[in-house]
């Protein structure tokens, strides 16, 4: 099947500051906006690095035919994207990857930390539109890093914000936030009807997956890994996924088989680090 050109030219419609550290970049991308599903990502070219940078789709606006991505300064590539202004043009690949599989569940608990929170608003909004119950627990380093609170509050039946430095709903990690969720809320659905959807630092996702497994909830995680192409040919964004019998495993591509994987299939890297800048 020929799906047309993967590479699109995007007009920058807006660059909005979300926190002391983060900006939301809105891009006019009609075909991408029409095709995007929750949990997919884009590869964005910039003026500083040779390779594109992968960023989760944070918002889709069908009226404005736009897609937004959010980012926080890390390396030169992301810093350059953060400096784009209305009227600039960049080239983009996407939508890419396999997103959240949420439609078969009665409740979705979205859990995010760090830049991982940006992969969650479209999931919560889509689940809400599908009449699926929604809860959300987010962790931020400190109160000044809190982002998109209004959108999360609008899309989640219950929202708990956690920071180990205090100043938000829960003083602690997202695990403390999950433990603070109303038990009646969690008990309303059969465990197998509850999906925990998590995106954040690998140790956080691993701990959240364990929390979900203890309760019999399904769990999906959205992984980050350094990648060159984003559409499957380079085979660089490898993650270990269980395969075959016993302890068998294989490297799958975060960009194609993921970025959203069933947590039970993931073999966590002991020294895994996050995505590139």
């Amino acid at each position: 099947m020929n799906t047309g050109r993967l590479e699109q030219t995007a007009l920058v419609l807006a660059n909005v500051r979300l926190s002391t550290a983060a900006v939301l970049l809105e891009l006019r991308l009609p075909e991408t906006a029409a095709a995007a599903r929750p949990g997919q990502f884009l590869m964005l070219a910039n003026r500083r690095t040779y390779l594109r940078r992968p960023l989760a789709i944070c918002a889709v606006d069908h009226d404005r035919r736009s897609v937004s991505v959010a980012m926080e300064a890390k390396g030169a590539g992301i810093r350059d994207l953060m400096n784009l202004v209305h009227g600039d043009e960049i080239t983009v690949l996407g939508p890419l990857g396999r997103g959240w599989r949420y439609t078969d569940y009665q409740a979705v608990i979205a859990v995010g930390g760090g830049t991982g929170v940006y992969a969650l608003p479209t999931l919560l909004e889509a689940a809400r539109a599908a009449r699926i119950a929604t809860a959300c627990v987010l962790g931020f380093r400190e109160r000044s890093r809190l982002v998109l609170e209004d959108r999360f509050r609008a899309a989640a039946d219950t929202l708990l914000l956690a920071s180990e430095k205090g100043g938000l709903d829960v003083a602690g990690t997202v695990l403390d936030g999950l433990r603070a969720l109303d038990p009646a809320l969690l008990g309303r659905h059969a465990p197998g009807q509850v999906l925990v959807a998590c995106c954040g630092p690998a140790p956080m996702m691993r701990a959240v997956a364990a929390w979900a497994a203890e309760r019999g909830f399904a769990c999906q995680v959205s992984l980050e890994e350094r990648m060159a192409c984003g559409f499957g040919v380079c085979r660089t964004c490898a993650c270990r996924v269980r395969a075959g019998a016993g302890d068998g495993w294989t490297y799958e591509r975060v960009c194609c088989e993921g970025p959203v994987f069933d947590a039970a299939d993931i073999i966590w890297e002991e020294d895994g680090d996050g995505c590139e800048s």
Binding site: G75, T236, C239
Partner: peptide
């Protein structure tokens, strides 16, 4: 199976794999 990640690094005018 190939090598463990990270498998790619940015370089000036190119990349390492």
């Amino acid at each position: 199976r190939g090598n463990p990640p990270p498998r790619v690094a940015e370089a000036a005018a190119g990349m390492l794999n």
